[in-house]
Deep mutational scan, measured.
Amino acid sequence: LEELEQFAKTFKQRRIKLGFTQGDVGLAMGKLYGNDFSQTTISRFEALNLSFKNMCKLKPLLEKWLNDAE
């Protein structure tokens, strides 16, 4: 859980630094990986307001997006 919290915090900082909005991330993930995510979902991930199971599902996809974006 602590690792997920740290990743969510780091993800948000890096996303902002790269100049992407939460909506941008959701759209890009849909185009790149075929998984559409709403701005709300990205927001809830960053705020740790998703279930643990959903957080765990999203984390590898967001890590991949972040690596591709950088």
Rank of each mutant, 00 (worst) to 15 (best):
L32N: 08
S51Y: 02
T40K: 07
C56W: 12
K59N: 03
Q22Y: 10
G34S: 06
D24M: 05
N54W: 09
C56P: 01
N54S: 14
F7C: 12
Q39D: 14
G26M: 09
A28Q: 15
L18G: 03
K17Q: 11
L32H: 12
R44Y: 04
F11Y: 03
R14I: 04
L1R: 15
N54E: 10
L66T: 03
E70R: 02
D68P: 02
Q39T: 14
S38H: 08
Q6Y: 10
F37A: 07
T10N: 13
E46G: 00
L66V: 13
F20H: 09
T41Q: 10
D24A: 08
A8V: 14
F52Q: 08
W65G: 01
M29E: 01
K59C: 05
I16Q: 12
L32P: 03
D24W: 03
E63T: 06
L58K: 03
F37M: 12
K17R: 04
T10S: 10
P60I: 08
P60D: 09
E63R: 04
R44W: 03
D68L: 08
E70K: 14
C56Y: 15
G23D: 14
T40H: 10
F37S: 05
L18Y: 09
S43A: 15
L1S: 08
W65C: 02
M55F: 05
T10P: 00
E46S: 00
L18E: 02
L58H: 09
T41G: 03
L66D: 00
L18T: 02
N49Q: 13
K9S: 10
F37D: 13
G23Y: 10
I42D: 00
K64H: 06
F45N: 00
T21P: 02
F20N: 04
T21W: 01
F37L: 13
K9N: 08
Y33H: 15
I16M: 13
W65F: 14
K57V: 11
K59W: 11
M55T: 05
P60T: 07
Q6V: 07
D24C: 04
K53Q: 11
L18C: 06
F11E: 00
L48A: 08
Q13C: 03
F52S: 11
M29A: 04
A47G: 13
E46F: 00
A47H: 05
M29Y: 02
S43G: 04
E2M: 12
L62Y: 07
V25C: 05
Q22D: 10
T21L: 03
L18N: 02
Y33L: 12
D36Y: 09
A69R: 14
Y33P: 06
R15V: 01
S38A: 09
F45L: 05
W65Y: 03
L50S: 04
E3M: 06
K12Y: 04
D68E: 11
L1C: 07
L1Y: 15
N49Y: 07
D24H: 08
L61R: 13
T21I: 01
Q13Y: 14
A47S: 09
L66Q: 03
K53V: 09
L66H: 02
F11L: 04
R44S: 14
I16H: 09
D68C: 06
L27S: 08
D68H: 12
E2F: 12
D68F: 12
K17Y: 07
F20I: 15
E3W: 03
K17A: 13
K9R: 14
M55G: 07
K12G: 04
L61S: 07
F20D: 01
L50G: 07
S38M: 02
R14C: 03
M55I: 06
S43V: 08
E70Y: 02
A47D: 15
V25R: 02
A47R: 09
R15L: 01
E5I: 06
E2R: 12
L58M: 14
L18A: 09
K53F: 15
P60V: 05
Y33M: 05
M55R: 02
K17M: 12
A69V: 14
E63P: 01
R14G: 07
W65V: 03
T40N: 13
K9G: 07
E5M: 10
L58T: 07
R14A: 09
V25P: 01
K17S: 13
K31D: 10
Y33T: 08
N35T: 13
N67Y: 15
Q6H: 13
F7I: 03
K59H: 11
E46L: 00
L18P: 00
E5K: 11
F37N: 02
N49V: 08
E63L: 14
F7W: 15
T41E: 04
K64W: 05
A8D: 00
E2G: 03
L66F: 03
R44C: 08
K59G: 04
L62C: 04
F37I: 12
G26T: 09
E70P: 02
L66G: 02
T41K: 14
K9L: 07
E5H: 05
Q13M: 11
V25D: 02
L58E: 02
L62F: 11
T21Q: 05
S51G: 14
L62I: 06
E3N: 07
K59T: 10
A8Y: 00
T41D: 11
L58Q: 04
G19V: 03
T41W: 06
D68T: 09
R15F: 01
L62D: 02
L62K: 00
M55P: 00
N49C: 06
K53A: 15
N54A: 14
C56M: 15
R14T: 11
N35R: 13
S43I: 07
K12E: 09
E5L: 11
F45D: 00
N49H: 07
Q6L: 10
M55E: 02
K59Y: 07
G34V: 04
C56G: 09
P60Q: 06
V25A: 08
